[in-house]
Design a protein around this nucleic acid. Structure first.
Lengths: 342, 342
DNA sequence: GTGAAAGCGCTAACAT
DNA sequence: ATGTTAGCGCTTTCAC
C-alpha cells in the first residue's frame, strides 16, 4: 500500500497541499469546513504524518534520547519508566541507549542521538572522569543535556540526583542509634560520586557521634551479592571485630546477610545490616533488610519535568545550572533494628 | 554553532556534495584519496550525518519501536535490555513506548511508530481481544511486526514466547512429585493467553497424575502480593483443605507465603509453594521460593534476532509466521521441597 | 571517478 | 482563507 501524503489528500479535495498541511496542524486561518473535510479524508486514506519530513524541515524531532548503563537493573528501569511516562504525556518519544558502563558505548550513544537530531538527552554517566568531551559536543550543538543520578559536576549541566551523602549519613546514624559501634562499609570501586558521597556520609556520621573512622573497615569492589559474601568471609577469617555493615547497594548487603547467617552470626542481634537502593527483595527476606530508598520513579519524572521546563527557555545552557537533589528515604527494617545500647 | 552538512565538506574540498555523500557511505567508485580527505574534513568540522534526511530519502530509518506494558517490572525491563543490545549491535536504534496495559496507549504507540517510520515493531500486547485492528495497520504498511511474550494468535504474526503450558505443567507436576495433593492455583483475571496456558498446564498435570481438578481451588484476581495474601486468608477462613499453592506470578506466591507464615503454617512441610517469573527476591527469602524462570533476556535477544533475520527477506508477512517458543526452566527451591510422600 | 539533477514529505515565509 | 515557493540534508539515477 502506497503511503498517503498531504498531496494525496489535497488532490482528493481539490485544494493545495499547503492548505492540507495547515488544516492538519489546526492553523487558525483555515475554515472549519475545510478542516473537517481534510480530517475526514485523512482518516479515510489512513494518513499518517511523516515525522521524518516534518522534523527535518522544522528542526524539531520531539524525540528525547535516554542513556543508561543498563536496563537490567531495577534502579534504571524504574527511572526510565518515570521518564518515558512524563515525556510521552508531553508529546515526546523516547530513544533508548544502554552503555553497559562502557565509555565507548556512551560516546556512540551521544553520536547516534546527535545524528537522530534528538531535542534533548537525559543521561546517567558510566564514569565521571576521562574523555567526557563528547558531552560537550551536545552543548556545542545546543542540544539540551541533563544528568540524572550520576552527574559530571565539572560540566555545569542541570541534573537530578539524590543526596547520597545524606543517605549514607542516615544509614550510618541509624546503625549507631541502634547501638552498633564498629560499622563496616562496603562500597563500589567505580569512580562515581554517588559512592564517594555515601562514604562521606558514613564518615561524617561516625565523626559526629564520636566514633573512630577505621580504614580497615572500608571495603571496595564490584558491588554484588558475591562482594558482600566475600567481605564477610574475610572479616570473619581475619577476626576483625565488627558489629554492623552498611553496604552501598542492596545486593551486597544481601550477600553479607547470607554469609553471616550461614556462619551462625545472628542478625540483627550480633550484627546489624543496612543496604542502599530499596530493591524489591529487601522487604521479603528474613530478617527484612533495612535500606535507603532512592525514589527512582520520582527521579525519572523530575528529570523529565526539568527538561520540559528548561527546554522552554531561550538559552538552555546557562552559567548556573539547576540541580535538583532528591532526599533519600531511610527504610529501617529488621536487619538493623534492636533495642538501643544492647 | 551551525551544523555542518555534506555541502560544507564539499565546499571545503572543492568537490561536489554527491562525491562527499558517496565517500561517507564508502561507495566503491570513490578513490581512496578522496575518501580519506572527506573523512578527515568531516572529522575536523564535527560532521554528524542527519539521519532524518537520510531516512526520509532512503525510506529506511534504522529505528525499531518497542511496545511494553511497563518498564517498571523486572520481566519487561530485562526483555528490553536484551533487545536493545542486539539491535544496537546491528545498527538499529530503539524507540520505547509504555502502554500501562491500556489499549488506547497501545494504539497511540503504534501510530507514533508509524509516523516515525520505524523499520519494525516489537510488541507485547495489553490484551488479546477487542480492537486490535491497529496492529493490522502495520501489516498494511508492510512494517514488520513481532510479538513477544504476549501474542495475538489470530493475527499470524511471528512471535517469541515461552511455553507457558509447559511451565504450568512443570510447576504443578513438581508439587505433585513432592507429595502435595490438594494444589491451589492463583492466576490473573486478565484475558491473556499466558495465564490461560499456565492454568491449562496445571489442569493437565493434575489429570495425568490422577488428581481431581477442583474449581474451588482456582482463584483469579490482579496478581500481586495482596492477592496471594487474600487468597490464603480466604482459604484458611473457609477451612478449605489444601497443601500446596501454584501462583502464576512470584509476588502472588510471596504474598501467600507471608500469610501462611504469619498464621503459623509451616512451608514447605504443611504447604508447598511455587511461583512463576523467577524474580530476584525468590532466591533470598526464607524458605527460598520455587519458581519458573522465563528466560527474559534470552526472549529479548531472540525476538531481536528473529526480526533481523525476517526483515532481510523479500516479504515479511508470510502465510506461516515463525513462532519461537522458549522452554521455561523449573527452579525448584525450598518452598516446595520436602521428602516425597510425606 | 565524479558531477548534475531530481525528489523524499513536510514547514513556513511570502503572496494574493 | 488559500496558493506559491523555497528549501531542510540527504540518496540515487543518469550523465560524462
Amino acid at each position: 500500500m502506497k503511503k498517503t501524503t498531504i498531496h494525496d489528500i489535497a488532490a482528493e479535495l481539490g485544494v493545495t497541499f499547503s492548505t492540507v498541511a495547515r488544516a492538519l496542524n489546526d492553523h487558525p486561518a483555515i475554515s472549519a469546513a475545510t478542516k473537517a473535510a481534510v480530517l475526514e479524508t485523512a482518516r479515510r486514506l489512513n494518513y499518517q504524518q511523516n515525522k521524518l519530513a516534518s522534523s527535518l524541515r522544522s528542526g524539531r524531532s520531539n524525540v528525547i534520547g535516554i542513556i543508561v548503563p543498563s536496563l537490567d537493573t531495577s534502579f534504571f528501569s524504574s527511572v526510565v519508566h518515570g521518564m518515558e511516562r512524563v515525556l510521552n504525556e508531553n508529546g515526546y518519544s523516547v530513544l533508548l541507549y544502554q552503555t553497559g558502563e562502557s565509555q565507548v558505548q556512551e560516546q556512540k550513544g551521544v553520536n547516534t542521538f546527535l545524528q537522530s537530531r534528538v531535542d534533548g538527552v537525559l543521561a546517567s554517566v558510566s564514569a565521571e572522569k576521562d574523555q567526557t568531551e563528547f558531552y560537550a559536543s551536545l552543548r556545542k550543538r545546543q542540544v539540551p543535556l541533563l544528568f540524572f543520578d550520576r552527574a559530571i559536576q565539572e560540566l555545569a549541566i542541570p541534573s537530578v540526583t539524590i543526596n547520597d551523602f545524606q543517605g549514607g549519613f542516615a544509614a550510618t546514624e541509624h546503625l549507631i542509634q541502634q547501638g552498633y559501634q564498629n560499622i563496616v562499609h562496603i562500597m563500589s570501586d567505580l569512580h562515581l560520586t554517588i559512592f564517594k558521597e555515601r562514604l562521606r556520609g558514613y564518615v561524617e556520621a561516625l565523626k559526629q557521634h564520636g566514633l573512630p573512622v577505621r580504614e580497615e573497615l572500608i571495603f571496595k569492589g564490584r558491588v554484588s551479592l558475591e562482594l558482600g559474601q566475600q567481605t564477610v568471609q574475610q572479616l570473619l577469617e581475619t577476626q576483625t571485630p565488627f558489629d554492623a555493615i552498611f553496604a552501598a547497594e542492596d545486593y551486597t548487603a544481601m550477600g553479607a546477610l547470607q554469609t553471616l547467617q550461614e556462619r551462625g552470626v545472628p542478625v540483627p542481634e550480633k550484627v546489624g545490616i543496612i543496604g542502599f537502593a530499596n530493591e524489591a527483595f529487601g522487604a521479603f527476606v528474613t530478617p527484612s533488610l533495612s535500606t535507603v530508598d532512592q525514589q527512582t520513579v520520582k527521579m525519572g519524572e523530575e528529570t523529565a519535568r526539568l527538561f520540559l521546563q528548561l527546554s522552554g527557555q531561550k538559552n538552555f545552557y546557562q552559567e548556573t545550572p539547576e540541580r535538583i537533589v532528591l532526599d533519600p528515604i531511610l527504610v529501617p527494617r529488621k536487619s538493623s533494628t534492636r533495642g538501643v545500647n544492647q
